[in-house]
């Protein structure tokens, strides 16, 4: 494969995986902004979405309906998670809340083993998956779906937070929680919405990656960790920066895998995390606030 087509090929792969990380990273940012919690169960919502969609499709439920049902169920799980695990501990310290989310993540994975076992499963592509030739590089239609759905989801998120009244109320809680309460806004309710919406984004990520790389009970761990790295690159509070971070990681991984060895792709991502934490602890694009991630 000539260099140009190899380059394009790696960019395609990077954008595909980056779009998945972006969706999960946005979930991290939304949850952190509104609740102050780093939700390490975020990646497992992706696994849950993928596994549920695979199950529904295997039950001969039409794929579109199965996907919508899966997202709906994961949103519900996210809401239940907030009410039963985060809300009762809302006054606890940040490390306690992080440990709670880690515990929930482990519980979700355990439940997934019981239900779906340890064998990898896969979801059929959304449409016929005949490769498209672009300058001698191969582009799978599922990759177009992945990037397309991610972009549409991110635009929808932007619309929700900037154009809808409830989205603005959520933003108000992020900007000034105590002033928001004085307007009659219930930050606890906003916390519920944010975690449920984040869970939904995670589910979408899992569903669109499942036809490309399959799904296992433990897929959420690595997706979650990479998305966390992307969110840290964005300073944990900056959604557009987290999206850029997600695509950076996706492309970096893709190039590491394509030009070097797949064994190092995870190490490269985490090395990037360490570099950001050591040298730019506010994130690559954050303004100086004195607050470190």
């Amino acid at each position: 494969m000539e260099l140009t087509s190899q380059f394009i090929q790696l960019i395609f792969s990077g954008l595909t995986i980056g779009s998945i990380y972006a969706l999960v990273a946005i979930g991290f940012v939304i949850t952190y902004n509104i609740t102050g919690v780093l939700n390490f169960a975020q990646g497992d919502f992706a696994m849950l979405g993928a596994m549920l969609a695979i199950t529904f499709v295997s039950m001969d439920i039409p794929m579109g309906l199965g996907i919508i049902l899966s997202i709906g169920i994961v949103v519900l799980v996210g809401g239940i998670f907030e009410r039963t695990a985060i809300y009762p501990a809302r006054n606890a310290s940040l490390p306690t809340l992080i440990i709670i989310t880690l515990g929930v993540a482990i519980a979700i994975r355990g439940l997934a083993i019981l239900i779906w076992g340890t064998q990898p499963r896969s979801l059929p592509p959304f449409t016929e998956n005949n490769p498209i030739n672009v300058l001698n590089a191969v582009l799978l239609p599922q990759s177009i779906w992945a990037v397309g759905i991610s972009v549409v989801s991110l635009i929808a998120m932007h619309y929700f937070f900037n154009k809808t009244f409830i989205g603005k109320a959520v933003t108000a809680c992020v900007v000034n929680r105590s002033a928001a309460r004085l307007m009659g806004i219930k930050p606890e309710w906003m916390s519920f919405i944010s975690i449920a919406v984040s869970a939904g984004l995670g589910a979408i990520a899992g569903i669109i990656i499942a036809p490309i790389s399959g799904a296992t009970y433990e897929m959420g761990l690595m997706i979650g960790m990479k998305a966390f790295v992307a969110a840290v690159i964005g300073g944990l509070t900056n959604a557009p920066a987290a999206i850029i971070g997600a695509f950076m990681i996706g492309i970096l991984e893709s190039f590491t895998e394509g030009l070097w060895t797949s064994g190092y792709k995870d190490a490269i991502s985490f090395a990037l995390l360490l570099l950001v934490l050591f040298f730019m602890p506010n994130g690559l694009f954050a303004k100086a606030t004195g607050k470190r991630v």
């Binding site: 603005k168 933003t171 108000a172 900007v175 000034n176 002033a179 928001a180 004085l182 806004i185």
Partner: peptide
């Protein structure tokens, strides 16, 4: 304690 990231009108609506 206004919501500095939101517009004047959005602040009022909230």
């Amino acid at each position: 304690q206004i919501f500095d990231a939101l517009s004047v009108k959005d602040n009022m609506m909230l």
